[in-house]
């Protein structure tokens, strides 16, 4: 075995051991009625960035770490982060740790209506962002974090709430200059009826994520 190939394997093993399996806490993504358990509430919304990602801007393929180091970073499972935001929800507002994020994050598609199913209310979005590239960080990803820490106003009596479309205006360094909330209730409702049936209803409860 060539020495360089050996280094590829070492890098992959290190990251595989350092990267625990993702296990959503409290809420998980729901794409059909089969994903919703009895008593679950649904959070419906959409997130996008302006301008959108350029082709190749998010790149989670393996690569060499630095200019002085020939080992290649291979991150198992990194590709599932493509075209997705990671989110971390919790029932109380706090500063999440990196471990907390890695263990409990949820992935939602960029600029598509998503639904999250769970039982807790209310909940806070502690962290949101995009895994942009692979790196030799603890979980093997270089992340761009977006402003978060807002409350999702879902009540104990709600079955489903619509939180709006959160738009982050950013520059090429993912520095956010403005956050706006757009009300796209009608199109979100159409999307949800396709997933959960014609009788689907949701209460409008736009978040204050600014």
């Amino acid at each position: 075995m060539k020495k360089r190939n050996l280094m590829y394997i070492i890098a992959a093993l290190c990251l595989a051991l350092a990267t625990p399996a993702m296990a959503e806490r409290y809420y998980k993504t729901a794409d059909s009625s089969g994903d919703v358990k009895k008593g679950d509430k649904l959070i419906v919304g959409r997130i996008r960035i302006e301008p959108p990602l350029e082709p190749g801007e998010q790149n989670l393929r393996s690569r060499r770490l630095t200019s002085r180091d020939n080992s290649t970073v291979i991150v198992p499972g990194a590709k599932k982060f493509m075209n997705s935001f990671f989110m971390l929800l919790d029932t109380k507002k706090s500063d999440p740790t990196q471990d907390d994020l890695i263990k409990n994050e949820i992935l939602v598609p960029i600029d598509e209506t998503f639904a999250l199913a769970g039982k807790k209310a209310p909940v806070y979005v502690l962290s949101t962002g995009i895994a942009m590239t692979v790196t030799f960080a603890k979980d093997g990803k270089s992340r761009a974090f977006l402003p978060s820490g807002y409350k999702i106003p879902i009540g104990k009596n709600d079955d489903a709430v619509y939180i709006g479309t959160i738009v982050y205006y950013r520059d090429e360094f993912m520095r956010v200059s403005k956050v706006s909330i757009k009300d796209e209730y009608d199109s979100a409702l159409r999307d949800m009826k396709k997933k959960f049936g014609k009788g689907f209803k949701m209460r409008k409860a736009l978040v204050d994520a600014k």
Binding site: L65, T66, R68, D69, M132, T135, S142, F173, M174, R175
Partner: peptide, 27 residues
């Protein structure tokens, strides 16, 4: 994106890499 040091010794060479935030206000 990163800085680092390379230290040579009897056992060979060690590379210490320090990645910096590539995105956001800290970059």
């Amino acid at each position: 994106s990163a800085f680092g040091t390379i230290k040579s010794g009897f056992g060979g060479t060690s590379i210490y890499s320090y990645p910096l935030p590539n995105y956001g206000d800290e970059a």
